[in-house]
Design a protein around this nucleic acid. Sequence first.
DNA 1: CACTCTACCTGTGCGC
DNA 2: TGCGCACAGGTAGAGT
Length: 271
Amino acid sequence: MPELPEVESVLQCLSSSSPALIGRQVQKVLVLRDSVVDGDLDTLVTALTGSICSTIFRHGKYLFFGFLSSHGTQSRWMALHLRMTGRLFLVPEHKSRERHTRFTLILDQGLALRFDDPRAFGRVWLVDDPSEVTVSLGPDALLVTRDCFLDRLAGLKRQLKPLLLDQSFVAGIGNIYTDEILFRARLHPLRISDSLTSEETTLLYESMHTVLEQAVTAKGANIDGVFEAGSFHVQVYGRGGKPCCLCGTEIMKERFGQRGTHFCPVCQPCV
DNA sequence: CACTCTACCTGTGCGC
DNA sequence: TGCGCACAGGTAGAGT
């Protein structure tokens, strides 16, 4: 599932590819499944056709593509969320369609930006300004400073797992990295945020930062070979019943808040 | 405010 | 072999 590190990897791939996405003009918009577009489909197709991609950035798990109209400076933005199984590729135009391709921008120079998504949860939509989306998000989990993190934590009384998953607290962390962060911080997923000592709070921030930095460097997670994209090795996610890499105890898998949660009952004691 | 549940999707892997 | 079904999970929105 693409979380912050995987989305960052997509961004860096699109930004560094040559020939680049930036500067490409959209010749045609192919919508192969209508539900991929949130909002009015015709409006999006009309706005993007003929426009030129001028910038790309990421906030949490969201990607934003800036477009300039070919005749003026009016800018529109395409927001995109990969959800669980979405993938983005900049490909030669003749490879612009696969079995699960939902949406494609046919570009100049024989290129295409292709959005594949087997489970079809991912979405693209048009916004006048990215802030329409980011206003409801917390700061990016990779960029948030320790002081800002501690400020946002203060006064909250919430279970750590749902808190880290809450995109309005910090943006970018999903189910996999939540489990990895809490394992590294040696904190039980159901610990209440206001019960943490200041040392534990700092450890939580440092763990979040370290795990995300390492995963970005590794270009995403590698989960028992399921994900080919990255090489970040998970220590608890998907390892229920297997030995903890620190103490050898069996990793537990339980459902907390409708989500599979993996943790070591010894390294992450319930308090 | 904090939490729970449901809907949205479809490929995978299990039991029978 | 093949069928049915639980499961995976990010987000929105409604409910407790």
